[in-house]
């Protein structure tokens, strides 16, 4: 949930990158951290295992002036993708305002994508939300790999809810689609906030 501080004229949003293990969530944040100008970003922190697998979360604070008169902060998190870390994923999802679901485009990874999306929905429902209500963007990552599933097939498998979720095709390790994804989710989060806020 967004935190609005009228005294400091500051709004904070929390965006979480979700998806199956090794789909590229951390890589997305690393690329954003690498390419973002210095004054708009904070220090990136990764709580990872010795094999560089995310253990708890990665964290990257970003700053913008997207809303007139307010400093807008986006706190970017990733979750650990491995199935066994579900309790950790729930903790990271707490109070989040938007989710990027990073799907692995390799055809053999489709069952893991579906399972991870169902897991996201279950965890959001425990917090009184769901994938249908939460601002959400899909990134179909690793489009450069061999044996990738066609986009239409991935849509059929995971983007089949009542509202079609915006999709960005990406090759996160080369930076492709990373900022398009970030722009898409931040726009959705801001619009969602402003709509709810101005409806009052």
């Amino acid at each position: 949930m967004a935190v609005v501080n009228y005294a400091k004229k500051e709004i904070q949003f929390k965006i979480v990158y979700y998806g199956p293990g090794l789909c590229g969530k951390t890589t997305n944040l690393q690329i954003v951290h690498e390419k973002m100008p210095g004054d708009s970003k904070g220090k990136m922190s990764s709580l990872a295992t010795s094999q560089d697998r995310t253990l708890f979360f990665d964290f990257l604070p970003l700053k913008s002036d997207a809303i007139e008169g307010y400093t807008t902060k986006f706190q970017m998190y990733t979750v650990p993708g491995q199935v066994k870390y579900n309790s950790t994923r729930k903790l990271v999802l707490r109070n989040c305002d938007g989710v990027v679901f990073v799907a692995d485009s390799q055809i053999k990874k489709m069952p893991e994508n579906i399972e991870s999306l169902q897991n996201l929905d279950e965890n959001l429902k425990e917090q009184g939300s769901s994938v249908d209500e939460m601002p959400l963007v899909f990134q179909y990552n690793k489009r450069d790999m061999k044996n990738v599933a066609p986009v239409e097939y991935m849509d059929f498998l995971i983007n089949n809810g009542p509202i079609r979720v915006p999709v960005v095709n990406g090759v996160a390790c080369d930076g492709e689609g990373v900022f398009d994804t970030l722009n898409a989710i931040s726009k959705l989060v801001l619009h969602d906030f402003i709509q709810k806020k101005n409806q009052g």
């Binding site: 904070q12 929390k14 220090k43 922190s45 709580l47 964290f59 604070p61 950790t88």
Partner: peptide, 27 residues
């Protein structure tokens, strides 16, 4: 959720400190 409400003394890396604090406390 890891969002800073108010701080005192130093605001250096406070966003990161808050994120890690929330994580540590939750764990």
């Amino acid at each position: 959720g890891g969002a800073v409400l108010v701080d005192s003394g130093s605001d250096e890396e406070n966003d990161l400190m808050a994120a890690l604090t929330a994580g540590s406390f939750a764990a």
